[in-house]
Amino acid sequence: MNKPFILVVEDDKPIRKLITTTLETQGYRYHTAETGEVSIIEAISRQPDLIILDLGLPDMDGVDIIKKVRDWSNVPIIVVSARSEDRDKIEALDAGADDYLTKPFSVEELLARLRVSLRRIRYDSDKLQKDASQFINGPLRIDYAAGCVWLDEEEIHLTPSEYKLLCLLAKNVGKVLTHNYILHSIWGSHPYDVPALRVFMATLRKKIEKKSAQLRLIQTHIGIGYRMLQVGDDFSDR
């Protein structure tokens, strides 16, 4: 089986070389683009399995590239950028990026983020072939048809808001969801603010992670949002 094909969009030569050398040593196939215009053409023509994207390109802002790609593709996009402000991360994630890595970064973390996003591709593919009425992630099982949640075959009783939160995270497993995205998806016109969302999330985590201190299903990205981890994901909280 061929290794996934990755499009690297980066105009900084040393960073581009670091990324491509890392991919090469791990056996990934890749192609590079140094401008936004070229990256869009390459994304359409080559149909990559994943895109690694810098935001600060010479001809186009990376957020605009994300929006253009999202018009026709759900390919995972990992942003690798020197922009470290929360508002920049939120803007990119709200535009449709799956993950955000701030420069400078470690090779190990980049590879871990790649593995997470590529597992999501496999999960989405498997989901098309299986009964989509259930979600299973390690000891967690959601029966969408019945509206029930089990942990190690013990039913967990959730409030309607907690259940909606869990389902939203599960249907986007491996992807960082911003506070605004979650609020809009569940409550529409944002009747709850971020502090209230944190309370809902805290009670949800207490219920689904209660059996083991080592079981971590929901990852907090401080100031950004939350992510449902697939059991076995191997990177730390931001």
Rank of each mutant, 00 (worst) to 15 (best):
M1A: 14
N2W: 05
K3R: 15
K3P: 09
P4F: 14
F5D: 09
I6C: 12
L7T: 13
V9P: 10
D11N: 12
D12S: 09
D12W: 07
P14K: 08
T21F: 13
T25Y: 11
Q26N: 14
G27Y: 11
Y30R: 13
A33G: 10
A33W: 10
E37L: 09
E37M: 06
V38H: 10
V38R: 13
I40T: 04
E42C: 12
I44P: 00
Q47T: 12
P48F: 08
L50Q: 09
D54M: 03
D54L: 04
L57T: 00
P58L: 00
M60V: 00
G62Q: 04
V63Y: 03
D64E: 12
I65K: 05
V69C: 08
S73I: 08
N74R: 11
V75F: 10
V75C: 12
V79D: 03
A82G: 11
D86M: 07
D86G: 02
L93Q: 06
A95G: 08
G96A: 06
G96L: 06
F105H: 02
F105R: 00
S106E: 02
E108N: 02
E109G: 01
L118N: 12
L118Y: 09
R120T: 15
Y123L: 11
D124Q: 13
Q129D: 11
D131V: 04
A132P: 14
S133K: 12
N137D: 15
P139Y: 11
Y144K: 13
A145N: 07
A145V: 02
A145K: 10
A146L: 04
G147K: 05
C148Y: 01
D152G: 05
E153A: 11
E153M: 08
E154M: 09
I156C: 06
I156N: 07
H157I: 15
T159H: 03
P160A: 09
L165W: 01
L165K: 00
L166C: 09
A170Q: 05
N172I: 02
V176Y: 02
L177N: 05
N180E: 14
I186L: 09
I186T: 00
Y192S: 03
D193C: 06
D193E: 11
D193Q: 10
A196M: 07
T203F: 06
L204I: 04
R205Q: 12
K206N: 12
I208H: 14
L215Q: 15
I218C: 10
H221E: 07
H221A: 01
I222Y: 07
I222V: 09
I224R: 07
G225S: 06
Y226H: 05
Y226L: 04
V231E: 15
F235Q: 01
S236A: 14
S236G: 08
R238P: 11
